[in-house]
Design a protein around this nucleic acid. Structure first.
Length: 494
RNA sequence: GGCGGCAUACCCAAGUGGUAAGGGAGCGGUCUGCAAAACCGUUAUUCAGCGGUUCGAAUCCGCUUGCCGCCUCCA
């Protein structure tokens, strides 16, 4: 069947066929760097990160561009408030953005251009539009005249007349039509400015993506992504500018992710109901957040709460637990490969489950990136694998049994990683979890280890009453002990 | 006012015409000195409601109800 994607432009699922076989040109709208990113930005970043990873997994040579809007009214306002240079504000929040993205395990795109470094391309496009008579200068600004572009409204599915009739369009004396949008904005004396044929100024917001997209990916490219809220007016305007200027289709497939909600309402700056990524990661594991985000289809809204993420986290613990069990109880595979037949004789069902995962996984992902279904398959394999391991009690696995467990585990982690999950060693993950959560118990790692040692001594003396007292004492504080052949482990259970 | 989306078990969530994936929680069991984890079993004759199309519908069509989003900066 091949990859099918839902295209906002056609409002239907379509077979994905890249312009150039084997290669994909992929653009996602980045952030305006004037503040810390919130969970909504995290969702968008994670969703497109998974899409990027999957395209790479399919073997496409993918050029992924994500811009930074580093000149904009909000940045200037922030700079004014702080008495800082706008470049300083941008630099600070770009830095913060990278910290957040790295924490979330989001891969770096191929290119991350800055708006301020690509102003000549923007001026070029505006010039073309002015020369064609599609853009006009009014005062110190240059506007795009929406009525000169026939297809205006095709992405967002609205008619010009309907929008003009809408009550919320601001009237501006400089504009011929209230929906005309600014391409070039003349600067006030104290504002940063770039020279242009229309006088000193700065670019409008929409023009930067048109310019950087076409500059780095070509005048037509394959995929353009962003949040649903960018459909109108941002992406609608991008299409208008680019297609009016270049006379070719701008983007073949438009992908838009749904919002993050809080109590069933959109998370947004204006509503004030947002959480920043860095705040949330103080008490939530980044990988659990990722699993939470991608356990729902990317186009649907998702309701964020600590409880909901905690549920995802339990599942993630289980996946890592099985990976840990396989690592501990199998030796690295020997040089002599073991025949499939011998593996199958160990556990036909597990063997088949591991063998069929690649196909099932790809089928799910090919269906407009159905991560929820793909994750379902991962859990199925985990359960079969753990069941197989449990058959051996606490013993180490040898020969074909070990080989089968390793095979299944490799299939599990290999596919999880396409989703950006199970990317770390299980003990690193579990250690991270302990460190993250112990803060809420009021104890330190040393406290816990001391108690465990105490209990260990009691157990050696068969003083189980004392051992259980220590266990209950720790449990009351949220520390759960687990006795294993390798010793006593602990984790924070609240 | 215009445009669009959603409604599946206690909660989250796949499913897009062939007889309800998966996760969390609960209950029962196995294992364990006791636990925990894990595993096994169990929890929707039914998919907001009402009609229709069909041999067959959660899936298609119509209507009704409820919730949400966009039309303004916004992932």
């Amino acid at each position: 069947m091949g990859l099918q994607v839902y295209n906002t432009l056609t409002k239907s699922k379509e077979a994905f066929i890249p312009l150039e076989p084997g290669k994909i040109k992929f653009y996602v709208c980045g952030v305006t760097v004037y503040d810390y990113c919130h969970i909504g930005h995290a969702r968008s970043a994670i969703v497109f990160d998974v899409i990027y990873r999957y395209l790479l997994h399919l073997g496409y040579e993918t050029t992924y561009v994500r811009n930074f809007t580093d000149i904009d009214d909000k940045i200037l306002r922030r700079a004014r408030e702080e008495g800082a240079d706008f470049r300083e504000i941008a630099r600070r929040y770009i830095q913060a953005f990278y910290e957040d993205m790295d924490a979330l395990g989001v891969l770096r795109p191929t290119l991350e251009p800055l708006a301020t470094e690509n102003i000549p391309c923007m001026i070029e496009i505006i010039k073309i539009l002015v020369d064609k008579g599609i853009a006009y200068q009014s005062g110190t600004d240059v506007y795009f005249e929406v009525e000169k572009f026939e297809g205006y409204g095709k992405l967002s599915g609205r008619q010009l007349e309907d929008m003009v009739a809408g009550a919320r369009v601001e009237v501006d004396v400089n504009k011929k039509n209230p929906l005309d949008f600014v391409l070039w904005k003349g600067s006030k004396p104290d504002e940063p400015a770039w020279d242009s044929p229309w006088g000193p100024g700065r670019p409008g917001w929409h023009i930067e993506c048109s310019a950087m997209g076409s500059h780095f990916l070509g005048s037509t490219f394959d995929i353009h992504g962003g949040g649903k809220d960018l459909i109108f007016p941002h992406h609608e305007n991008e299409i208008a500018q680019s297609e009016a200027a270049f006379g070719v289709p701008f983007v073949r497939y438009w992908l838009h992710n749904g919002f993050v909600n809080i109590n069933n309402e959109k998370m947004s700056k204006s509503l004030g109901n947002f959480f920043t990524i860095r705040d949330v990661l103080q008490h939530i594991n980044a990988e659990a957040l990722r699993l939470f985000v991608i356990s729902k289809h990317y186009r649907s809204p998702v309701d964020f709460s600590d409880e909901a993420v905690a549920e995802a986290e339990k599942g993630l613990d289980r996946l890592y637990g099985t990976v840990a069990a396989v690592k501990e109880r199998t030796s690295p595979p020997g040089d002599t490969p073991i025949a499939d037949k011998a593996l199958m004789e160990q556990d036909k069902e597990l063997f088949e489950e591991a063998e069929s995962l690649p196909r099932a996984f790809n089928e799910a992902m090919d269906n407009d990136f159905n991560t929820a279904q793909a994750i379902g398959y991962l859990f199925n394999l985990q359960r079969h694998l753990q069941r197989f391991m449990d058959r051996f009690g606490q013993k180490k696995l040898k020969g074909p049994a070990a080989a089968l467990a390793v095979k299944a585990c490799d299939a599990l982690t290999g596919h999880a990683r396409v989703l950006g999950l199970l990317c770390r060693e299980p003990d690193v993950y579990m250690d991270e979890q302990r460190r993250l959560k112990i803060k809420s118990t009021g104890l330190t790692e040393e406290d816990v280890l001391r108690s465990i040692e105490e209990r260990h001594k009691a157990r050696l003396e068969k003083n189980f009453a004392e051992a259980d007292r220590v266990r209950r004492e720790l449990e009351a504080k949220g520390i759960q002990l687990e006795d294993t052949p390798q010793g006593t482990r602990w984790r924070v259970s609240i």
